[in-house]
């Protein structure tokens, strides 16, 4: 199955971080922000979170669940998981290629 990644523009990076955060189960917005900050060491503001979430939801990569106490959890969809796996495999392959090339340069 081939999944095309839509152009998320400057929100591609936060979108990827959100998808990784949701890969171990549904989370609400605040939990995603905390998870991303702990994982990446970088802050994620609420404005960025929702700008990326709206794009991901429209693309069908995440879906909202029923709100609990005004907190709406999101979960990764099957197509979102496939797209994330493709992205991560691509990054891993590229990183391995770079490391191989670096290794070849070493004396």
């Amino acid at each position: 199955m081939t999944t095309k990644t839509p152009a998320f523009g400057r929100f591609a990076e936060p979108s990827l971080l959100i998808l990784v955060s949701l890969s171990d189960g549904p989370k609400h917005g605040y939990a995603i922000m905390q998870d991303v900050e702990q994982g990446s060491g970088r802050p994620m503001g609420a404005g960025t979170l929702y700008a990326a979430l709206v794009r991901l939801e429209e693309a069908g990569f995440v879906e909202p669940l029923t709100p609990i106490d005004r907190r709406r959890p999101y979960r990764l969809t099957a197509i979102g998981a496939t797209m994330l796996a493709e992205q991560l495999r691509g990054l891993t392959g590229f990183a391995q290629q770079g490391l191989r090339q670096l290794h070849e340069l070493e004396p």
Partner: peptide
Amino acid sequence: DVFLALLEERPLGPYDVADI
């Protein structure tokens, strides 16, 4: 509604305001 609840989770600084 959920966005407002999210903003109430922690104090907002200038960074957060600019981000919003």
